[in-house]
Design a protein around this nucleic acid. Structure first.
Lengths: 227, 227
DNA sequence: AGAAAACTTGAAACCTGGTTCATGTTTCAA
DNA sequence: TTGAAACATGAACCAGGTTTCAAGTTTTCT
């Protein structure tokens, strides 16, 4: 029911870690809301885990605070000890998850390989992660409407990381030298849609490796007929 | 304020055309709701146009029926003469817009060209359309949460059309023979994300042709360094 | 013309669910 | 031990927006 908690357990502890780069939303002085007690930290974590499930299952608007607190096994009122509003917890969740996706990708890129191999590995990891945590996928996607700033930040950051890899590949002479932001976004879009189709919707009609192989090979050679 | 109406004027007349393929949602016996009068058709159209603006500007949940009727210049109660609920008009809108996107793409593919050229042309058209009708983009995207069935149908149909083109290209020997559904989805994802980044978000930092050229060339040759 | 059907109207009923709050319990440091 | 701060509780409050409805007005058809 909550494979989510595994990574939230890891991440959840720092849901309010100061934003590395404050982008617009004042992020509020949530100092007042930070738990000062072990018990408090436990409750906060339960709420975040519960929210991930609730939002993932019912979507932002269908989801209810009482649904979250019920799942968390806390009283309705307790919610407001930790979050100012429904939006606030959603935002915390989105940022944690964005981070979680990033981490998952980074891990997959641990051992060095050719630039093309790396893109394939990254996609495989992403597909596996998405299949494992469909809620994450959904929540980040819904952020486009609930918390546009975080949504934008997520994709801009992700795009920038892809571009970095492309440039690195170009530097090593493995990739073309003229790659730019648009290439990174094209690859990102590819990945996201393949994730939607095969990881989130697909009941595994194509395994992650296969999908990643197809995309990798598309990146390597294009789709034109061999001459 | 409503460049939308132009295409809705065209499409709006048949918002209830029987679904070619009923997919799950019973689509209800909307026979009862079909206008039987010229006046009725006019009002229905006003409501759809207004809804496109309202939903596009405020998103599904922020949008209100009274907002729609106010923009349409009709009474609140009249809304329910034509739609059963907020969801119902949203669905009608999504399906119309899905159709509109399809039409725009078809038009761009009017004159024959090489398979790769066609993909580039399709993307250019899509980017132009998206820039022109950001609301459409947003509404279709939000359907993922408000009306998942229509959302899925939109992308499955679109993906299928792309795949058809790829197969056609393969048949003519211009494209590789091993292209499959995943390739179509990869291309679709590419297009959608480039649309989001450069048509919807971008203030035209890159013109549609340039973006389409980059993507087209990625499809043609891949991103590996020339050997 | 006359009557039925189609359509319009906007006030008000109705619901839902986010948020508040006053009261109690637990934790922790001195 | 003890008091203050942190945290927990859930009934009640409340705003806002969807939906209903009964009473008109316009259109269509014979």
């Amino acid at each position: 029911m909550n494979q989510v908690s595994s990574f939230l357990l890891r991440i959840g502890l720092s849901p309010f870690s100061p934003d590395v780069m404050d982008t617009g939303t004042p992020a509020a002085a949530d100092t007042s809301k930070q738990p000062r007690t072990e018990r408090g930290r436990r409750t906060l974590r339960k709420l975040l885990d519960a929210a991930a499930v609730e939002f993932g299952e019912r979507g932002f608007h269908e989801a209810s605070i009482s649904g979250i607190t019920a799942r968390a096994g806390t009283a309705l009122g307790s919610f407001y000890t930790y979050f100012d509003s429904k939006e606030a917890i959603f935002q915390a969740l989105v940022r944690d998850m964005s981070e979680a996706v990033k981490v998952a990708a980074r891990e997959a890129l641990a051992e060095p390989a050719s630039a093309l191999e790396r893109e394939r590995a990254a996609l495989t990891a992403f597909l596996r992660f998405a299949a494992e945590h469909k809620e994450v996928y959904r929540i980040i996607d819904e952020a486009e409407f609930v918390d546009p700033e975080s949504y934008r930040q997520h994709y801009e950051t992700t795009g920038a990381r892809i571009l970095d890899r492309l440039r690195e590949g170009a530097r090593k002479g493995e990739l073309r030298a003229d790659l730019e932001e648009a290439h990174a976004w094209a690859i990102m879009g590819m990945n996201v849609f393949l994730g939607l189709r095969y990881a989130v919707w697909g009941e595994g009609d194509l395994p992650a490796e296969r999908v990643a192989a197809i995309a990798g090979d598309l990146l390597a050679k294009g789709i034109a007929a061999d001459r």
